[in-house]
Amino acid sequence: MNFHLRLWRQKSADTPGRFEGIEATNITPDCSFLEMLDIVNNRLITDGKEPIAFESDCREGICGTCSLVINGVPQGPGRGAACQVYMRKFKDGETIFVEPFRAGSFPILKDLVVNRSAYERIMRAGGFISEHTGGAPDASAILIPKPVADKAMDAAACIGCGACAAACPNSSAMLFVGAKVTHLNLLPQGQPEAKKRARAMVRAMDEEGFGNCSNYYACEAVCPASVSASVIAKLNRDYIKGEVSEAVGAID
């Protein structure tokens, strides 16, 4: 198969970028999208040109390193991350636009590589349960009904890739923050810090300059881990509880 790639090239964070047309010829349909880019890169290197910088690691859809937007869709067509996209999903001779995640809070570092450290800072503000290693009670001491554990797991499946903010017309990070807060706030272990957590993480998210949620649900549509936007509803609820209890001087 042959493809006309329109790839975003950008030398560094401070230089302006542009699209460059590159031909990907003679690609087998069983090849993954990233493998197609590998082939293109190795050909560029052989021709003495600079390869396209893009990030990937596990290539099985779980590490969340991928940050490609294929034809306007973060993480590409279909469920799963960009590494799970196979060339047989495209038409022979198709023009494919490949861009980096675009969001003000994810500045582009080079070509298709973006800086997602904003998510790290949100996590550090409250994405954890404070506890002491070695001080934990026996695991069987905490009973958690299966439906609760399952719901927490649904949210915990988030791979932290940033596709939600990249897909959002407002660049809102609410699905990510919602997933983190929902995972921990649903569990009994997370209760002592539940309100504080929601409050701290939303404040950190706002500080990073992400946009606001307009309930478009584009995030949910692209989420490689199929996290439901209902986590955003829970975040909205827990955040207000947190702010109100702080405002009125209630504990937590």
């Binding site: 699209f19 869709v73 675009r102 809070s105 660049s171 809102s172 946009g211 478009y216 949910e220």
Partner: peptide, 19 residues
């Protein structure tokens, strides 16, 4: 206004994605 500030650049291909 904040949303506009948060999204300095649009994608070349627009895709409405569920919205």
């Amino acid at each position: 206004m904040e949303n506009r500030a948060a999204t300095p650049q649009k994608y070349a291909v627009t895709n409405t994605l569920q919205t």
